[in-house]
Design a protein around this nucleic acid. Sequence first.
DNA 1: TATTTTAAGTGTATTTAATACATTTATTCT
DNA 2: AGAATAAATGTATTAAATACACTTAAAATA
Lengths: 233, 233
Amino acid sequence: MKNYSKYPKYLVAVDCIIFGYDIQKKILKLLLVKRSFEPAKGSWSLAGGFVKEKESLDEAASRILRKLTGISNVYMTQSLTYGDTDRDPGARVISTAYYALTGISAIDYELVKDNGAHWRSVDDLPKLIFDHPRMVKKALADLQNLVKVKPVGFELLPEKFTLVQLQELYEAIYQKRIDKRNFRKKILSMGILEKLEEKEKETSKKGAWYYMFNEERYLKLDRNGFSFNLDVS
Amino acid sequence: MKNYSKYPKYLVAVDCIIFGYDIQKKILKLLLVKRSFEPAKGSWSLAGGFVKEKESLDEAASRILRKLTGISNVYMTQSLTYGDTDRDPGARVISTAYYALTGISAIDYELVKDNGAHWRSVDDLPKLIFDHPRMVKKALADLQNLVKVKPVGFELLPEKFTLVQLQELYEAIYQKRIDKRNFRKKILSMGILEKLEEKEKETSKKGAWYYMFNEERYLKLDRNGFSFNLDVS
DNA sequence: TATTTTAAGTGTATTTAATACATTTATTCT
DNA sequence: AGAATAAATGTATTAAATACACTTAAAATA
């Protein structure tokens, strides 16, 4: 090995698994696009794109998300990098997957529509191109593990939410029912939620108190050795 | 976007964080190399290399590990991909980190020496090039989380090991003392260890019974919903 | 051959966390 | 005034985590 010049170079892309939670329908969704270029033009795909010369992988992923949805400052984290030689029939492309968590309501609906993107329930996905099904499967598994040990579920909800809504979110992610009293006992005992003096009155006559996630409080507890854990029955 | 031809291409590399456990000294080590080419020739570095045209990322990582140590069939798993524009001063290089778990004794010592590689204790590492310190830090954190929930610690031990040795391994990874009786109670109650009719007699007069990890048994339990968990006091 | 030395091996009580489970409350609508 | 609806609440039971100290097997030595 003398220098770098004799080594091959490849196209490098990022693909974004954009999770959104539909608080009305209580289902977890993915934002998918119809591919606008060959190969596989017109097929369903994750939002993706090639990495530019002057941006990092993280920046490329943020750019792609922003272009599609109009939002930045979103929880986004790197998943695996896919590098099989034949994963893209057009050329050798190394692609790093990222997954993002966002509230569907926060998103610019017109922009999404103009980009030909659509929200699809995670348990009713269309056929996806290439190895995108693998990417989705992996990201979903990662998400299920992540929400158990980090308070990232809140990223999928509006700023104000009720305990019923929070529980429904966890039920949608875990795909199982949770006991109401145990769930509330556990999450409230952590001391990272703040009760507001305001009720959500759409879904019941009595109304349900709104809560907010107190991030500073969580970070402080975390520094003192507290571990978020919401692995409930 | 019409086709792929107008997008930039980059060098793609893999870097391997090779963990080894020194059963005598009871410390976790990393296999490091002195870089043989510019830039940063002669500096300490992770074992790495560029991805060839006809190999996947996983294959590249395996090849690099095999070339350095002589071993294959090692536990190896992908970590993060590092893609900051200026991470390598020589050129833009996107690098995917992998970490491997191996018993130091299993490794071809001559080959390692010929390659200019050295085992270094994780808590006494030399200055590493580029973003390799970040890679190591991340891999160590991943390892600490992984050994709690998957029986991969055994990959760092010889096939036959004593319960004392197993406990010492966990103590080296977690960097804390563990209660002997609680550790043994927990690991034995899982039913994934097999007691042999043979004792290790080097370190004590009484001798300590050898055990083996029974992988088939673990896989069967795992399929039936059992979760490995070794998060002990 | 009795005694010392060394590390391995063992059990229980206590504390804490997880689970299972049903009724009351606030409000609106009729 | 009564019915309807979803939100809110507490306790007893079970299971898991923790804290803790003495006995045993074998070799070495006196």
